[in-house]
Simulated scan of single mutants.
Amino acid sequence: MKSVSPAPVSGLYEVLVGNDIFYTDSTGKYLIQGEIIELSTGKNITEQRQADLNRIKWADLNTANAFKTVRGNGSRQIAVFADPNCGYCKRLEKSLLQLDNVTIYTYLIPILSADSTHKAKQIWCSSDASKTYIDWMVNGVPPAGKMDCNTPLDKNLNIAKSYGITGTPTIFFTDGSRFPGAVQIADIEKKLNTLK
């Protein structure tokens, strides 16, 4: 349990366990699992609180630990935490090809298997990590070559742990908000447009 604090409803307390929000009464006798909706506005208080708790500081991301892909003028930015053996990451990469005027910082976090570490090292150590990654994720061309260069993989895994990233892909936007999973390209585009 990370914290207990008063909830926006009198008599209830918010209990933060990992990245999950629960509610309890003042005695701790009852645990409520669910969302609080403000009826007058339809606002999902729990969802908003969850988004705030999962927010990061964009400036804290060390872009030296990622490889960069620029399309168009690169004016819009996202960070993607991905495993090279993640099927949802592959689906996301195919979708991201549709984005224009974007800079994508890809942080490799090999969490699925030993082969993920093997591929991540080959991608990072290649002469063009972005191209090698896209070739593998989109076109199915396996990475090949050396694996003995210095990589940021351990740093990326530590960052992922500190941000509570337990699955791939996870996307972060410049306002610090996150989208977990292979979200629809229309939702990514909509979010990017709100950040202009």
Rank of each mutant, 00 (worst) to 15 (best):
M1T: 13
M1K: 11
M1A: 12
K2I: 12
E14Y: 06
G18D: 02
D20S: 14
S26C: 10
S26K: 15
Y30A: 13
Q33K: 14
I36R: 05
E38L: 12
E38V: 12
L39E: 07
T41A: 13
N44M: 07
I45G: 09
L53I: 14
N54H: 13
R55G: 06
L61Y: 08
N65G: 10
N65A: 08
A66K: 09
A66V: 04
F67H: 10
F67I: 08
R71E: 02
Q77V: 13
V80R: 03
F81K: 02
C86I: 10
R91K: 15
E93P: 01
L96P: 01
L96A: 08
L97E: 15
L99N: 05
T103G: 06
I104R: 07
I104G: 09
Y105S: 05
I111P: 00
S113P: 01
D115G: 11
H118Q: 13
H118F: 15
K121G: 10
K121P: 00
I123L: 08
I123W: 03
K131P: 00
Y133A: 09
N139T: 02
P142N: 11
K146V: 07
T151V: 10
A160D: 02
S162H: 03
I165G: 01
P169F: 08
G176A: 06
E189Q: 15
T194V: 05
L195H: 05
